[in-house]
Design a binder for these strands. Sequence first.
DNA 1: CGCGCTCTTGACGTTTACGTCAACGGAAGT
DNA 2: ACTTCCGTTGACGTAAACGTCAAGAGCGCG
Lengths: 148, 148
Amino acid sequence: MKTYSISQLSEEFGVTPRAIRFYEDEELLKPTRQGQSRIYAQRDRVRLALILRGKRLGFSLVEIKEMLDLYDLKDGQATQLSYTIRKFDERINSLERQRADIEQALSELRAGRAHFELQLAGKPSSRASGDGDHGRLIGYGLNASAQD
Amino acid sequence: MKTYSISQLSEEFGVTPRAIRFYEDEELLKPTRQGQSRIYAQRDRVRLALILRGKRLGFSLVEIKEMLDLYDLKDGQATQLSYTIRKFDERINSLERQRADIEQALSELRAGRAHFELQLAGKPSSRASGDGDHGRLIGYGLNASAQD
DNA sequence: CGCGCTCTTGACGTTTACGTCAACGGAAGT
DNA sequence: ACTTCCGTTGACGTAAACGTCAAGAGCGCG
């Protein structure tokens, strides 16, 4: 059966050998040895692919490790599957929240940008606060009503 | 003129005193002193609000500091305004990329979730490889073309 | 005077996923 | 033998934004 050296996997997946060794330190990979050198079999190669995929999806190495470990246990897969599904759901929820936050920030940023553009165009920015900028918090003009 | 203690600002804005002192270390705030204690004036209070707003929008403290510093220079505001607009544009672009990444991850996650659901429901998922049992591995997309 | 409270200044700890040397080991090529 | 290459094991460094003590200082109260 085919095996791989660390540099082969490194090149194939576009990650540094350091990263691959790190995954081993973290017990996500357990290659065999030939003397001192690490030898990666298909199993390891697949696990590495899964690790990188997990990372792309935003899972932490710890989470990925748990999924892989459960996969190894293979107790009929029920445990692993439901765990993984739960993790996926969590991740989905988290990403949806993130997306909402981003939308929010984007609309504020666009509004702010527009406001600055106007100012650049010459408008002095209508200030009337006295100390009432509190809830709305100082529009986009950082106008620190110097009332001290 | 009204002033504030660190704990007042801390409570009002829901941040720890430690954070506020940190902003001072980073030179985003420069409260005056009364003996050893820090005294925050309106100016500082407004700047704190701006700092927190900047954070919500995803700017780093360094970026926020640069915007505030330029605001202080106030050289007719042209410099500050164009700098800030540029920063906003960068941030907008960055967020749009992030959002695209999230959409991508979300669709992969949903597909993966669906796949696992099916397996849980009993489907053995089409096997073909004969070697280990890594061929099937969480496929639906990252099937490590087991060519060994 | 002692108590409690707010405030201060260090200064090290935390998290995540590696990067970056340093120093060394064994095999292959010339 | 010498150099080149690939590989190895430490071990410290990095980034961001604070958290978490530790050890005092200063003040008002009873």
